[in-house]
Design a binder for these strands. Structure first.
Lengths: 152, 152
DNA sequence: CAAATATAGTTTAATATTAAACTATTAAAT
DNA sequence: ATTTAATAGTTTAATATTAAACTATATTTG
C-alpha cells in the first residue's frame, strides 16, 4: 500500500491543472511533430530552422533563448544542421565572440515546403477547441508563463 | 530577408495558442523541477517515483504509459533508479514477460520527504492564476489533450 | 595599462529520448 | 501439438539535453 499525500483543495487543483497542462502540451507537440521524421528532422532542429525562417540570421545565444535550450545543446543541434547543409555558421568580424547562424538555400527551400505542412498540423491539433476557447487558452497560458518570471 | 509564410486568421490563432501552451508548460515544468537536482533526480526519474508512490508497484510498460516515455527509455531510467537503490525490479512468476517495479524503503522515504515540497512548488508556479482560471485552464487542456486521440 | 569581470561558444560527462531490431515468453490460431 | 501472432523488456545507434568547466574575446574597473 503506497503512502499517500493528503492534499488540500488548493493543492489538488494546482496539481490537477499542472498535470493537464503538461499532458496536453506533450500530446499536442508529439502529434504535430510526428511528421518531422519524414524530413529527417528532430523537434529541436525544426525549432532552430523555424526561428531562422521567421526572424532571419540569429547568433547562437539568441537561438538558445528563442527555443529555450542550453548553449551546449545549441552547439550540437547546429552542428547537425550544418552537416545536413541546412544552416551555416558565420563568425562576426566586429566581435569574434559572436557566430551568426544563417539558413542555407537548401534550408530555406526545406522550410518553404515544410512550414505550411506544420501549420496544417497545428490547426488540426488545436481543432478540438473553438476559436473562443483557443483565445482563452492562449490568454491563460500567457498569464501563467509570464508569471514564472515574477513569482520567485 | 527571410521568406515569410502568409497565415490566415485561423492559422495564426492556432499557431499562437500552440506556442503559448508549449512555452507555459515548459516554463512551469522547468520551474517546478529545478529543485530535483537537490535530490540528484531527473524529471523522468521523479516521474517514475511519483507514479509508484501514488499507485503502488507497476510493471514497466504501465510506467511508460503513465509518464509517456518509450519502453527503451524506461529501461534506462529504471536501471539508474535501481543503481540508486530507490526502486527494485521483480519479475512476475505467473507471466515472466512482466517485471514489476517497486519503491524501495529508501525510495519511499525520499518521496515522503520530496513530494510535499514538489506540491508546494506546483502551488507557487500556478499561483499567477486564480482558482477559477486554474479550473478553466484544466478544462481546456483536458479537452485539447483528449482531442489528440480523436482527430486523426 | 593591467587586472578583473562578463559574454559567446565548446567540450565533457552523465542522463534522457527515440525508433528499430532483437530475445524471451505467452496467447491465439490452425 | 505446432505454428503464428502478440506482448514485455533489452539493446543499439543516433540525437538531445543538462550542468559545469573550459577557451577565446570583449568590456569594465581601478
Amino acid at each position: 500500500m503506497a503512502t499517500k499525500y493528503q492534499a488540500t483543495l488548493t493543492e489538488r487543483l494546482a496539481l490537477d491543472t499542472y498535470i493537464k497542462v503538461s499532458r496536453a502540451a506533450n500530446a499536442v507537440e508529439l502529434r504535430i511533430n510526428r511528421h518531422l521524421s519524414d524530413y529527417g528532422l528532430t523537434i529541436s532542429q525544426f525549432g532552430v530552422l523555424e526561428a531562422l525562417y521567421h526572424l532571419g540570421p540569429l547568433h547562437q545565444h539568441q537561438l538558445g533563448e528563442k527555443i529555450l535550450k542550453s548553449s551546449g545543446n545549441m552547439t550540437l543541434v547546429i552542428d547537425n544542421l550544418c552537416k545536413r547543409g541546412l544552416v551555416k555558421r558565420e563568425r562576426s568580424e566586429s566581435d569574434r565572440r559572436y557566430i551568426a547562424i544563417h539558413l542555407s538555400k537548401e534550408g530555406s527551400a526545406l522550410m518553404a515546403d515544410l512550414f505550411p505542412k506544420h501549420v496544417e498540423k497545428v490547426v488540426v491539433a488545436l481543432s478540438p477547441l473553438s476559436q473562443t476557447e483557443q483565445e482563452q487558452l492562449a490568454m491563460l497560458c500567457k498569464k501563467l508563463g509570464v508569471g514564472q518570471l515574477e513569482t520567485v
